[in-house]
């Protein structure tokens, strides 16, 4: 915290607000100054007006996207954690599955969406699955890495005492991989949003992605931007929750004052 006098301004806390409002102010000014038409780049005030005008639709679709994302994300957590534990359990499993994982992660998920639509039809389900597919990878890799990098001395100490693999994992491996896991959640949640919106823009009849596509077709450019802002707000909100969770659960891993 701030060590200066009580009356001094806490610039660190203020800084994100100043930067955010500063960006919007410059944006607004530039649009008016250069006379950019609203269908190319609408000014924040115009976007704000569109948000007000379409508040109902924005709200419903945001909520739709949010829960689609969270459902996919929840699946990614469960599956990612289990697969991560499985891969990190043994060197041979790690070696065997890692190339497959890398290969899978290299596939552009946009190419997978049509397949999902083919299987499950258009709607929210492909969106949930895309969110899941795109966000589980960082979780798996991080959990597996946390387990695979247990200090050999630690393992020796416990194994020499007759500890089973399960003991080593429960006492050392799993707590050790928690910071990796929570770190991965921050990355995964933003990826999950990308996945669900991606799928919504391709084949869905609700959600922010769908709304954006419709707005674009109707040339409602301010509304397209309003959708983007709504997504950004959701993204920041969820990220903040994940970061807070990480701080709570694995405070021991943050020894420097930087993250406090």
């Amino acid at each position: 915290m701030d060590n200066d006098k009580a009356s001094s301004i806490d610039w660190v806390r203020l800084s994100p607000w100043i930067c955010t409002f500063g960006l919007f102010a410059i944006w607004e000014l530039s649009v008016w100054l250069f006379g950019i038409p609203y269908y190319i780049l609408p000014a924040p005030s115009q976007i704000g007006f569109a948000m007000y005008e379409f508040a109902d639709g924005l709200w419903t679709n945001s909520v739709q996207t949010l829960w689609t994302t969270l459902l996919g994300f929840a699946m990614a957590i469960v599956f990612g954690l289990l697969l991560g534990l499985f891969i990190g359990w043994d060197k041979r499993i790690y070696a065997g599955l890692y190339p497959l994982m890398i290969g899978f992660n290299s596939i552009p998920k946009i190419a997978v969406v049509p397949i999902l639509v083919l299987w499950f039809g258009a709607g929210w389900l492909p969106a949930v699955l895309t969110a899941f597919l795109i966000s589980f990878f960082p979780i798996v890799v991080n959990v597996a890495t946390g387990l695979a990098t247990i200090e050999p001395e630690m393992e020796d100490v416990l194994r020499a005492l007759g500890a089973k693999k399960l003991d080593v994992m429960v006492k050392v491996g799993i707590p050790r991989s928690l910071p990796y896991f929570f770190g991965a959640l921050k990355v995964a949640i933003t990826l999950a949003f990308i996945g669900s919106v991606l799928s919504e823009t391709i084949a869905a009849n609700s959600g922010i992605g769908h709304m954006m596509l419709t707005a674009q077709a109707n040339f409602e450019v301010p509304l397209v931007f309003a959708c983007l802002i709504a997504l950004a707000v959701e993204g920041i909100g969820m990220y903040a929750i994940m970061a807070g969770l990480e701080q709570r659960m694995t405070g021991w891993a943050h020894r420097s004052g930087f993250n406090r």
């Binding site: 200090e151 630690m154 100490v157 020499a160 005492l161 500890a163 006492k171 707590p175 050790r176 021991w252």
Partner: peptide, 28 residues
């Protein structure tokens, strides 16, 4: 097989950072 009548210490103290020193000592 592993012999539980032995104790080991290494160059690297390898303490678990999420446990207090007391709980680290109690690990075995």
């Amino acid at each position: 097989g592993p012999v539980s009548i032995a104790g080991m210490a290494f160059q690297n103290p390898v303490m678990l950072p999420w446990r207090t020193t007391r709980d680290n000592v109690l690990l075995p």
